[in-house]
Amino acid sequence: MIKVLLFGAAADRAGTRETELPVEAGLTLAELWPLIAERHPDLAPMRDTLAFAVNGEYARGDAGVSPGDEVAVLPPVSGG
């Protein structure tokens, strides 16, 4: 399992803040995205605006993700 956390506009569009994907082997973030978008199709149009974190640190598409990891879907930040 990979735990996926959603925030802000992404949580809003997906209608949930947390989901689990039944992933049994390692893959890259870029390979994980279609699984997230399949589960939550309303997220797909946001793809180009999103950043990702793996286990609490920003990660790029070629970053590895393994079962047990926590992936966060991060819309453009807007603190301040």
Partner: peptide, 10 residues
């Protein structure tokens, strides 16, 4: 803060 801190405003 506005670039890198994962905080969102509604």
């Amino acid at each position: 803060i506005k670039e890198v801190v994962p905080i969102w405003k509604r």
